[in-house]
């Protein structure tokens, strides 16, 4: 029994489709990481999963009564809005006072409940967002670049915490990240997205897949990965392809 089934999902704003023909399913208790360059539709995919954007075609089937916890990419609280951590955790309602302390503890920030949200550090803020997602005892946790603004040790600690949460509660996790090397070790499965599913599998399989290398390069060189992304899927032989890239294009064409 899967938690979530996505079949032939396409999403577009206006003329150009952001996602086309994406199919995937999420099983209970697995950690799935979605990687992809900027503009590859990662966030659109997650927004479609929570129902914030309507698919132009395809469908998303949820297990009936599925409880979802969602950690947004960023959450800006206007300085004019006074709100304590506890009040925030108990939104949008129906959450008892007694659920707050365990959720904060599970997220790794016990004892914050009386603080104002505006007084939290970046790392504490992200943990409180995680606690908010966990408070409803979700079966599926969705995280959208949840470690933006954290330094590398901070985000590594965050992902370790996610693994522990999965172990403690058995919830499935779908997360988006650009910090591939940090996230990969924690994932059971990686989906490489670039408008469509380029490749998917275990972290080892994906990181050695030619499609993945075409998108991100072989090393950590960010500039190189970006360059390759910009020239990806042009299907234009005149622009000085390197061997690796050409290989990647062929493979994705085959996949399409």
């Amino acid at each position: 029994m899967t938690l979530l089934d996505v079949e032939g999902l396409s999403v577009g704003y206006g003329a150009a489709p952001v996602l086309r023909d994406v199919s995937l399913s999420i099983a209970p208790g697995e950690i799935v990481t979605v990687v992809g360059p900027n503009g590859s539709g990662k966030t659109s995919l997650l927004r479609a999963l929570i129902g914030a954007v309507k698919p132009t075609s395809g469908r998303i089937r949820r297990k009936p009564g599925l409880r979802i916890g969602y950690v947004p990419q960023k959450l800006h609280i206007d300085p004019t809005l006074p709100i304590s951590v506890e009040r925030f955790l108990r939104l949008p309602g129906g959450i008892p006072h007694s659920a707050c302390a365990p959720a904060l503890e599970r997220a790794g920030v016990p004892g914050l409940s009386r603080q104002q949200m505006s007084s939290l550090s970046g790392g504490q803020f992200q943990r409180v967002l995680l606690a908010h997602a966990l408070i409803n005892r979700p079966e599926l946790l969705l995280l959208d670049e949840a470690t933006q603004g954290l330094d590398q040790p901070g985000s590594a600690a965050f992902y370790r915490r996610i693994e522990e949460v999965r172990r403690e509660t058995g919830c499935a996790v779908v997360m988006i990240s650009h910090e591939l090397h940090v996230v990969m070790s924690a994932s059971d499965r990686v989906i490489c997205l670039n408008g469509h599913v380029c490749c998917e599998g275990t972290p080892e399989i994906v990181s050695s897949a030619p499609e993945y290398r075409a998108l991100f390069g072989t090393g950590t060189g960010g500039a190189l990965a970006l360059y390759r992304h910009e020239h990806d899927h042009q299907h234009d032989a005149s622009c000085g392809h390197d061997h690796d890239h050409a290989h990647g294009d062929k493979a994705t064409e085959a996949a399409e």
Binding site: A52, L75, L81
Partner: peptide, 9 residues
């Protein structure tokens, strides 16, 4: 607070 947070709830 956040539109996507609302959608997810």
């Amino acid at each position: 607070l956040n539109e996507d947070l609302a959608y997810s709830s």
